[in-house]
Write a protein that binds this DNA or RNA. Sequence first.
RNA 1: GGGGGGAUGCCCGAGCGGUCAAUGGGAGCGGACUGUAAAUCCGCCGGCGUACGCCUACGGAGGUUCGAAUCCUCCUCCCCCCA
Length: 430
Amino acid sequence: MHILEELRIRGFIKDVTDEDGLRARMDQGPITFYCGFDPTNRSLTAGNLVAIMLQAFLQRAGHRPLVILGGGTSLIGDPSGKQSTRKVLTPEQIRSNLESQRPQFGRFLELRELGSEAGHAGELIDNASWLGELNYISFLRDVACHFSVNEMLTAETYARRLRDQQHLSFVEFNYRLVQAYDFLHLHREWDCELQVGGSDQWGNCVAGTELIRKTTGARAWVLTAPLLTTAAGTKMGKTEKGAVWLDAEQTSTFDYFQYWMNCDDRDVTRFLRMFTFLSLAEIAALDGLEDLDVYRAKAILAWHATALCHGEDAADSALATSMLLFDLERLFRWEQVVPVGRVPVAADIPQAEIPRAQLESGLPLFKLFVESGLAGSGKQAKNLAAQGGAYVNGEARRDPFAVVGLGDLREDQTLLLRAGKKKYCLVRCS
RNA sequence: GGGGGGAUGCCCGAGCGGUCAAUGGGAGCGGACUGUAAAUCCGCCGGCGUACGCCUACGGAGGUUCGAAUCCUCCUCCCCCCA
């Protein structure tokens, strides 16, 4: 199957410029393509996965990815799709974010080792390296002259801002030129012929192909992915506590696993196609599972997505913990979820320690929930208990002031606390 | 340069001298229903105190007042319109 066809089936294609031409070009041999990312946080989020996986699939088809970290462009701020001006980051923040995002890409893409042969291994490049030394006058003369303000003003991105009388700074207005210039630069220096990205980037990407054509006469292509929303209509990769981060410090591997496990029923196969490398045939076999059986598909999705991001061991552990806490044995067996050969591991429930002395004198329930981290404040813990969401060893305790003491310890000297349906904490007594 | 409008809790957004920890919506959280889903319904939703209460909070600094998110002054930032 042609990679373009596969990408379409997997749901990665919203628009392509000159698809036939691109297909013909790809048939002649590997192509170098790029996708830009803004280092606006120290970690990428699940929302970035669409673009990352799109790159990963292309790479697996033999093409070479260039990951452009917008160290230069994020000094500006892209107005695309935004209702208002974005706050601008300091160079220090950007540099630090950039460094911590770097290894995250390595989990999904095969990146070139320093000093090794290029091949189809990807490169990670900071566009600050060329934008930083850009000369304003020559930029105006060589690049800006190819852009028509009249035309840009009709672009949805800018037109809307004007129509709504929203502020649009000149800097933002220039974003498109700068991004187009990136493409031109990559075309010249790296033979980059294709840019991929989210569909909100369409205009900026196309501007790049036009700039390339005007200045070099060469052809270049754009492929954009749809902006993903969940079946429930929320933005992909966002959830209760905000974004789902790829960094285990910000979103634990267990929570990451749970994010996928908790996806909407209607999204399971779609997500399997986009966020795992399972073959289309394997995924097709999981399509149409009904009722409780969808959990098996969700677990497979969660395991593979977690394995990609955090490694197979982390995925095993998260699966084992989920199976224990949510009693999933009744729904499927371990071997039905993980790849052949991976053996079950011990569950790893979030833990907290509490000094034995505190339990000896007895600790009010709400304090216990605060100390274990299951509640953000005493007030919240009390509300939690009052509403019947505070459990000790599986039993709901409604009185926030009732004392929990040594007598509540289970045989293994632990307490299993639970807040609501999904949050657990194993408290050890030391 | 001139004129006008803003800055309120995670976000949006009311409030325009006391009854304001501050209406409403969204998000979030808990519960019921279920399947850790969706939809629906109910409750919670600054912090500390087991109560009366206290503390912190309406951009910042002062002031008027018995009393200010609400009035005045200055400052900072933002936006719109005309040049």
